[in-house]
């Protein structure tokens, strides 16, 4: 099967029902995308499939054929830079395990919405669990990232 991940093309020999998460991690060795629940409940495995945030732990790899997967390792600078800068400034992570998924979910929000309100953040981010409960800082960081993105464009 032909896969495009972070702009690179890969030939993978996996069963078509293998979730994208395990192709990325076990076959391509991209470890930034995390396994949390395997049931689309926590968002730790969030990646972009043709720009849409998806739960890669339940999405079979067959869904990705002919489409573009983007993981935390390949997030474009327009979104990555303000998000990373904001996450750094607010010092968001604790254990850090869910944070790449949080950032991938926030990236979709930020791409589509230059001025996310608290309600927008609730709507976009409530699918992503942080067991350390860094939510308040994630919220602040998203607001800050929106500011940074605007000022750089």
């Amino acid at each position: 099967m032909q896969l495009t991940v972070n702009g690179k093309s890969y030939d993978v020999n996996v069963p078509s029902d293998m979730p994208i998460l395990w192709v990325i991690r076990d076959k391509l060795g991209l470890m930034g995308t995390k396994f949390g629940c395997g049931a689309a409940q926590c968002g730790a495995c969030t990646v972009h499939l043709d720009g849409q945030g998806i739960r890669s732990c339940v999405a079979p790899v067959s869904r990705a054929e002919g489409k573009e997967i983007v993981t935390i390792e390949g997030l474009n600078d327009t979104l990555s830079k303000p998000l990373m800068a904001a996450w750094t400034e607010i010092d968001v992570p604790q254990c850090g395990y869910c944070q790449t998924g949080q950032i991938m979910a926030a990236a979709v929000l930020l791409r589509d919405n230059n001025n996310p309100t608290d309600q927008d953040i609730d709507n976009a981010m409530s699918g992503n669990i942080c067991r350390c409960a860094t939510y308040q800082r994630i919220r602040k960081a998203i607001h800050l990232a929106a500011e940074l993105k605007k000022s750089s464009s």
């Binding site: 060795g29 470890m31 993981t71 750094t88 010092d91 992570p93 850090g96 790449t100």
Partner: peptide
């Protein structure tokens, strides 16, 4: 003082047990 582990945790390069390969 800012945390010393933030960068690797947000870039996805921090190595958790799950990431050993």
């Amino acid at each position: 003082i800012k945390r010393l582990d933030t960068q690797e945790k947000i870039k996805g390069t921090a190595v958790f047990g799950m990431d050993i390969h």
